[in-house]
Design a protein around this nucleic acid. Structure first.
Lengths: 215, 215
DNA sequence: CATATCCGAAACTGTTGAGTCTCGTATATA
DNA sequence: TATATACGAGACTCAACAGTTTCGGATATG
C-alpha cells in the first residue's frame, strides 16, 4: 500500500518473501477486546479509534496495520466476540423445563446478557446499512441465547413434559425479547423477579404447562 | 464541500422565479415532521441539520432560530410526534380478547409500528446519555401501544373472560416486545402470520385461555 | 554489535457536520 | 410606497475524527 521509496519497497518484499517472517499481530485480542468495550460504552458512532488504541495501550497505526477501517475492526470484534460464550457442557439439566430455565437465572448470566444488549444497542445504527455486521451481531449476540432455550424446550418435548405442537422458535425467543425490551426500551432492570414472572406467567402456560399450584 | 471562489455565482437568479409561498409565522410542524423522517431513515448520528432543512424546504438558520441545538430539535420532534397517534374512540371492541387483538392487525398499524421502531432504533445511541429523550421516546413510541393492549386485557378481565391474576403489564408488553425483537434484532418481517401465532400460541394461553380448538 | 521488524506515540491531512452569519427577497402592515 | 420582519439560500468558522505518516525505541536473531 504505502510506498516510501522504491528501493526500500523492493527490499522489503524480497526479505519478507525469503524469510517468511511471522506476522505477529499478537496484540489482536487486546485490541478486539478494547473495541468491544468502547463499542458497548459509546455505540458505533460514539466510538473513536483513538479510544480503542488508548484502551488497548496500542498505537493507532497498529490498528490500521491490521484492519483497513473502523467498520472492519468492529465487524471483526463482533465476530470474534467469544468471550462469555455459553458452555453447552455445563448447562443445567434438572429434569423439568421450569427447573432448567430458572437455573439459568444467575447474576453472571444476567450481567453477560446486559453487556451483549448494550453492544447490540451500539450497533443499531449500522445494522441497516451493513448486512454483514447484522449477521455477525445476530450470530454472536442473539443466537447463542435462543439456542439454549431451544434445547431446553426440545428436551421437554422429548420427555413428554410439554406439547409437541408448541412453537419452539417463538418460545425460545420469548425471554431474550422481553429482556431486551425491558432493558433497552423501558430502561428497567432485568432481575430475577421479572424473569420468574415471565417464565411462570407466560412461557410455561404457553408451553402447555399449568400455572404453578401456588397461584 | 463548498468551493471558495471570490467571484462565485452570487448572482444566481434561479431562485427568484419561485412562487409566492404563504409564510406562516411558524414552519415548526413541517420542520418537526422532516426531522422525524430524517431521523427514522438515518438515525440520530446519521441525520444532519442540512438534511432536515432540505426536506422541510427551510433554511438552516430558520431551524436554529427555533431550536438551540440538534438535540433540542430531536427531543421536540419526538415529544410532538402526534402523527399516527392512536384514536381510542375507534378501537375495536369485538367482545373477545382474541377478537380485539386480531382486529388490531392491519397493514396500517403494522406500517405505523415499523416506522416507530425505526425511529426508536435511531435514538438508541442517545438514550443512555439523555434521560429526557429516553422519557419522551418511551411516552411517544412505546406507551401508546402498550396502553391499547392493557385496555383490551382489563376489559377481558372485567367481562370474566380471563383470569384476574394474570400479569397485565407483562402481557401488554408482549406483542410490542416480540415485534420489536423480530423486526430490529432478527430483521424478519412482522406479518399477520407471526402476530396471530404470537396471540394464539403465547398471549392467550398465558392469559388463561386455551389454545384454539383447531390446533 | 549489526540488522531487521514490530510497535507506541504523536504529528499530520482531509472531510464532515454543527452552529453562525449575511444577504436578497417575499410578505405584512401602515 | 415605506418599513419591518420572517424566511431561504448558502457561505463561513471551528472542532472532531478517520485515516496516514514519521520516528524513536524495543526486541529478536546472529
Amino acid at each position: 500500500m504505502t510506498q516510501l521509496d522504491p528501493s526500500a519497497e523492493v527490499d522489503r518484499i524480497a526479505t519478507s518473501a525469503k524469510l517468511g517472517r511471522k506476522r505477529d499481530h499478537t496484540r489482536d485480542p487486546e485490541i478486539l477486546d478494547a473495541a468491544i468495550d468502547v463499542l458497548a460504552e459509546n455505540g458505533f458512532d460514539g466510538m473513536t479509534i483513538d479510544m480503542v488504541a488508548a484502551r488497548a495501550k496500542a498505537g493507532k497505526a497498529t490498528i490500521y496495520r491490521r484492519w483497513p477501517s473502523k467498520a472492519d475492526l468492529v465487524l471483526d470484534a463482533v465476530a470474534c466476540m467469544k468471550a462469555g460464550e455459553i458452555d453447552f457442557e455445563r448447562l443445567p439439566d434438572t429434569g423439568t423445563l421450569r427447573g432448567d430455565l430458572v437455573a439459568m437465572i444467575r447474576p453472571r448470566s444476567i450481567e453477560e446478557a446486559e453487556r451483549k444488549m448494550r453492544i447490540m444497542a451500539g450497533l443499531f445504527g449500522m445494522l441497516s446499512s451493513s448486512p454483514e455486521l447484522a449477521d455477525a451481531a445476530h450470530a454472536a449476540i442473539i443466537e447463542p441465547r435462543a439456542a439454549v432455550n431451544r434445547m431446553f424446550l426440545r428436551r421437554a418435548i422429548e420427555r413428554g413434559e410439554i406439547s409437541r405442537d408448541c412453537d419452539v422458535e417463538m418460545l425460545a425467543n420469548l425471554i431474550p425479547a422481553m429482556a431486551a425490551f425491558r432493558l433497552l426500551l423501558e430502561r428497567k432492570p432485568v432481575d430475577a423477579e421479572f424473569l420468574v414472572s415471565l417464565i411462570d406467567g407466560v412461557l410455561l402456560p404457553a408451553a402447555g404447562l399449568d400455572r404453578r399450584p401456588s397461584a
